[in-house]
Design a protein around this nucleic acid. Sequence first.
DNA 1: CGTCGGGTTCGTACAACGTACGTACAGCGT
DNA 2: ACGCTGTACGTACGTTGTACGAACCCGACG
Lengths: 279, 279
Amino acid sequence: MSADPSEPIWNRPEPGARGASLSRDKIAEAALNIADTEGFEAVSMRRLASDLDVGTMTLYHYVRSKRELLGLMEDGIMGELLVPDDELPDDWREALTELAVRTYEVFRRHSWALQALRGNEENGPNGMRHFEQSLAVTSRLGLDGREQLELITLVDDYTLGVVQRQADADAFADAAETFIEQIPDGVLEYFDALVESGEFPNIAGLAGSDDPLDTIRLLGSVFFDENRFRRGLERLLDGIEADLSRRSRSRRGARSPRASQGRSQRQGSGRRAARTPRG
Amino acid sequence: MSADPSEPIWNRPEPGARGASLSRDKIAEAALNIADTEGFEAVSMRRLASDLDVGTMTLYHYVRSKRELLGLMEDGIMGELLVPDDELPDDWREALTELAVRTYEVFRRHSWALQALRGNEENGPNGMRHFEQSLAVTSRLGLDGREQLELITLVDDYTLGVVQRQADADAFADAAETFIEQIPDGVLEYFDALVESGEFPNIAGLAGSDDPLDTIRLLGSVFFDENRFRRGLERLLDGIEADLSRRSRSRRGARSPRASQGRSQRQGSGRRAARTPRG
DNA sequence: CGTCGGGTTCGTACAACGTACGTACAGCGT
DNA sequence: ACGCTGTACGTACGTTGTACGAACCCGACG
């Protein structure tokens, strides 16, 4: 009955009827601890069990596979994404910003998490709540379901894209200042030689200096810039807002969403070029 | 001399002075073949060697570690990103679009590649060329180096974000139509039960149907929608374009010649978001 | 022609991983 | 006190990346 192998972990009752020494929560917490302090690759079943003072195989009584463990960890993180309902602004743009910033900050705290999260489409309860919360924002915009989903994934994809790049930078160096120091000498020499070859004029001139390594320093400072995310988010939301108001304008008669209440949108760009994608 | 362990692979001469049976190119090609046909996880040193009819450890004469092999694969893929110079439009927006679309298509072809690419900051020659080509576009915009980098990473992060989500979808299902079929029954039941519970009104109402599974179907069709990327890219470029023209306008007419000050006034608190509901 | 050097090949071995299998213990309902 | 069953886990297998060192082979030199 509960032995159905396709049953997701969220449907199976947690062990513990008799005196169980562990719980899924405790396991997930310990795993998150390891990942946060020593990196995701340090999370192995043996290591986790040893932290919990248990035999390795004991874990498999609470979890069917390591994938399921990762699912538990993921849902824990999704929980951090939740915004208390009374803190979610009424204005759609502010609300989306709040959600995106929170997503950014959470995944920045657990910079290993994007990798772990990949590949299990089973949303846990917290994942569902986060999804619901996102929809609660977009549902006020007068969009149909598909358009709402597209809007959410649009902002999400951008956010996770930035997070991933910064996670990569994190995995490589501690900070912008030490970025260049942590690059092996040989790599720097290689880069230097290529730039000096004259085949990369734009790379060479980028930092406005004659030291090619200044380009790398500049790169490091951009990768680690914590405000870059917000600036890009504003650009994206500008584009979305323009599209929304353009759309609601053309759809006259219907109850128009309070898309823009004279917010920072002052551009009204008429430049709507006929753009042929693809040639 | 060539025994320096920090020397990147691109600086070390390729073996083959005497009759060598392999070459880095052949190795990279075989590895890319495996990854494209059987998935990235099928690329193991043993498997690759067996495909090349060589002992496993032979590979280590051409490559110092598996990471280096991944570096070779990555640079091969970066080569596919290169746009013939005469095909790169003059208009910056069209050019950025071309680059982004190409990036999207390449990584869509090799949907495993983003994962492999992660974590080696050593740009190969093709990576350098791609970087140079991106800068060739942004260098016409009158931006300083940092702004150019930020623009490039902005578009890139969005692009790779979308690619990653679709790669996840790919890894899970074959197409939008079969998306829901490939979800285990138990997971569907779990989702269904949650939605029926009434705690997720926005998820329940999303597809405009009384079957909760229609929401999942809708999700699948959005994840697999190949045009979603372009639509989002237009929104992003709209926002960027508005910002650029706003900026150049203020730089032309304002008293302060500093371009970096005419920003939008939005931008709330720094880390502590805690937004009080307007009321 | 023989012999040597070093570029090339690769068999073996080891540590780490996820986890299947089978067993041993402990607590409850009878 | 018995037995059922939830809980614990020792052992073992297969897979991974790769360190080590021996074997091979080819071009060059005496």
